Amino acid sequence: MTTNKALTDLADAGVSIWLDDLSRERLESGNLADLIETKGVVGVTTNPSIFQAALADGEAYAAQVADLAAADSGVDDAVFAMTTDDVRAACDLFTPLYERTDGVDGRVSIEVDPRLARDTAATVDQAQALHAAVDRPNVLIKIPATVEGLPAITATLAEGISVNVTLIFSLERYRAVMNAFLTGLEQAKEAGRDLSTIHSVASFFVSRVDTEIDKRLDVLGTEEAKALKGKAGIANARLAYQAYEEVFSSARWETLAAAGARPQRPLWASTGVKDPAYPDTMYVTELVAPGTVNTMPEKTLDAVADHGVVTGDTVTDHYGDAAAVLDALEGLGISYSDVVDQLEREGVEKFEKSWAELLDGVTAALERAR
């Protein structure tokens, strides 16, 4: 494990450091193994944009593309095979960590096809297919927190499959996600499943909230508006942790915990700073709280290792401040509900676009190989 002070302090404060990236090149070069050893990385998340970028590197996948072309695989089957192979290899790399942490960390996430984000039944079917194809106990299946995704989350967990719930922007939706999680565990318990083997994280997006709200504050241009820039994302996440503490101290949760259930950990996603005017470590050092995950792009991980200052819990004493930020934004006419609804739509659209580019790239590669 790392001897870097900032990263060690982060882990000691209860934050699991996950890398928000995966590629075959990382796996084959030993880069990911090195990050586990030197930077304290204990998990990996992927998404359609990450796979699109990874598979754009034709050289790393050339041999498999040739085999798939020779087998006359269609593009969807080819993408499924390549992505699940990468995730399986990463799961194997993390197996010792997974075993050492009793299944809490050493986790690798793979997302359902983003085109299914509004289709509950198809999402459940693909979650099961991905879980079976990767065939490793430390895989997490990513399901978006759309309205249609909520019952899919419940159904997947009820089958004993561990889930990473993604694309959460609003506090209201986050509460619905936690309810879907608890309902899934209740159904799994009724079916006689071992609850201790079912894990979940809830990926609450951070920087994108600031990007959208800062745009609206810039339009207003007042001193009051300027003073609120860069504050909404962290405030929103801190209030999410307050909701997490409330739900996971409830009688409903205690009943499940007594049966062996593990809590669904909050995961801070989109933690790379988009505005260069802000400290490049702020979505890490300002969101330190026990029992959380922070999934970082490598650039952010390097910044924290280089000059991050971790001072312990920076969340639980700031609920009042966080609520005041969101109230002030509403007072300026910036609608919280409008912002989070827009961000969810754009999040799904972004992943759909990346997936389309991925399919186009793999189609062209298959044709060249043939």
Rank of each mutant, 00 (worst) to 15 (best):
Ile141Glu: 12
Lys353Thr: 07
Gly308Met: 12
Glu148Thr: 10
Ser73Pro: 10
Asp194Leu: 13
Leu329Ile: 02
Ala155Lys: 01
Ala259Arg: 10
Ala69Phe: 09
Gly74Cys: 09
Arg88Ile: 10
Lys189Thr: 13
Glu172Met: 11
Phe169Val: 06
Thr84Pro: 01
Leu239Asn: 03
Tyr278Phe: 09
Leu287Cys: 12
Gly14Cys: 01
Ala69Gln: 12
Leu182Thr: 06
Ile36Asp: 07
Asp302Met: 05
Ile153Gln: 02
Ala62Glu: 04
Lys350Tyr: 14
His131Gln: 10
Ala227Lys: 12
Asn138Trp: 03
Thr363Asn: 07
Leu19Trp: 05
Thr311Lys: 06
Gly160Gln: 14
Val147Glu: 10
His131Asn: 15
Val206His: 06
Pro114Thr: 06
Leu358Gly: 06
Thr314Pro: 09
Asn179Met: 11
Val340Trp: 11
Ala145Cys: 15
Arg208Leu: 05
Ile50Val: 15
Ala89Lys: 14
Thr300Ala: 10
Arg216Ser: 12
Ala235Cys: 06
Phe80His: 01
Leu157Lys: 00
Thr295Leu: 09
Arg208Tyr: 02
Gln187Asn: 15
Asp34Leu: 15
Pro137Tyr: 03
Ala225Tyr: 01
Leu228Trp: 14
Thr101Leu: 11
Arg370Ser: 01
Val112Asn: 00
Ala365His: 02
Leu358Ser: 02
Thr316Tyr: 12
Leu35Ser: 02
Trp355Gln: 01
Leu22Val: 06
Lys353Ser: 12
Ile143Cys: 00
Lys215Met: 00
Thr300Asn: 13
Glu357Met: 09
Ala237Val: 00
Leu150Ser: 11
Phe248Leu: 10
Leu267Phe: 03
Arg208His: 09
Gly221Ile: 11
Leu358Pro: 13
Lys215Pro: 08
Val201Ala: 02
Pro96Ile: 01
Gln126Ser: 11
Phe94Leu: 13
Asn138Glu: 14
Arg208Thr: 03
Asp119Trp: 06
Met282Trp: 08
Gly312Trp: 12
Arg238Gly: 04
Asp77Ile: 10
Val134Tyr: 00
Leu217Gln: 03
Gly106Pro: 12
Thr255Gln: 13
Pro96Cys: 08
Ala33Phe: 09
Leu157Cys: 04
Leu332Trp: 07
Ala261Phe: 05
Leu32Ser: 05
Val177Gly: 05
Glu186Tyr: 05
Pro144Asn: 07
Asp85Arg: 03
Arg107Met: 07
Gly160Thr: 11
Val273Asn: 04
Asp280Met: 08
Gly14Ala: 08
Trp18Val: 00
Ser29Gly: 12
Arg262Trp: 07
Ile50Leu: 09
Lys274Pro: 05
Thr222Asn: 12
Ala6Gly: 01
Thr83Tyr: 02
Ala188Pro: 14
Leu19Cys: 11
Glu224Asp: 15
Ala258Tyr: 07
Ile198Asp: 04
Gly333Ser: 05
Ser337Ala: 14
Ile198Gly: 08
Asp34Lys: 15
Ser73Arg: 09
Gly43Leu: 13
Asp275His: 00
Leu93Asp: 15
Met1Glu: 11
Thr292Pro: 00
Asn236His: 15
Gly233Gln: 09
Lys231Pro: 00
Glu349Pro: 01
Leu220Asn: 02
Val206Cys: 12
Phe205Ile: 00
Leu157Ala: 00
Thr183Gln: 09
Thr156Met: 14
Asp280Val: 10
Leu228Asn: 05
Glu148Met: 03
Leu359Lys: 10
Val165Leu: 08
Arg26Cys: 09
Lys229His: 00
Thr101Asn: 10
Arg88Val: 00
Leu239Thr: 03
Leu150Val: 03
Ala261Pro: 04
Val284Glu: 13
Leu343Gly: 03
Val348Met: 08
Glu111Leu: 11
